[in-house]
């Protein structure tokens, strides 16, 4: 398409189109960051060197999801979207006031550990990247034949129709 910018109409259209392209990228980036899912493992454990101690009992909720109860040594997970999160902790010991904080997680990390005791003790970093050692293997079983012997085999895939029609 030849873009000439002679008339004001054409100029206006050109600007609007540019704006739309920008909008396209903005929306893409927005859903990319905002929709990005992270799995946060919430940890309530003592430090190895006992530099901090697990909380005796608490309810933790992230981003006003349903809260979960934690006893010392517990670990549970929450799946969240986006990078900025709010954590709310209410303690079983009613004398301690509720704790609220916000934190950000790095965009590129799928799974992290949030250590509540560390956070409460103000030790940085209280969030660490988590790498599951056996993660890859769990998917191994799904593997099916990945190459086809012939034309006909290739189209045998079509008989996976059940899948397709969804019966």
């Amino acid at each position: 398409m030849k873009i000439s910018l002679k008339t004001p109409k054409e100029k206006r259209r050109f600007l609007i189109r540019i704006a739309l392209v920008l909008l396209y990228f903005c929306v893409t980036i927005f859903v990319l960051f905002n929709g990005r899912g992270h799995t946060i493992l919430i940890d309530n454990k003592d430090a190895d060197d006992l530099s901090y101690e697990a909380v005796d009992g608490m309810e933790v909720s992230i981003d006003s999801q349903e809260s979960a109860e934690y006893w010392p040594g517990d670990r549970d997970k929450a799946v969240v979207r986006g990078q900025k999160h709010k954590i709310r902790i209410s303690f079983f010991d009613e004398e301690i006031p509720e704790f609220e904080a916000t934190f950000t997680v790095p965009f590129s990390v799928d799974m992290l550990i949030l250590s509540v005791p560390k956070m409460l003790a103000g030790i940085e970093p209280f969030i660490e990247t988590f790498v599951a050692p056996d993660f890859v293997d769990t998917f191994e079983k799904e593997e099916s034949a990945e190459s086809f012997d012939s034309f006909e085999d290739m189209y045998d895939g079509l008989q996976q129709e059940d899948y397709y029609i969804g019966s």
């Binding site: 929306v27 859903v31 990319l32 929709g35 799928d110």
Partner: peptide, 19 residues
Amino acid sequence: MAIDWGIAGWRGLVFAALV
């Protein structure tokens, strides 16, 4: 792409559509 980047929910669908 959406799955690779771990984009969840309807945002994942929008992302897929945009790509």
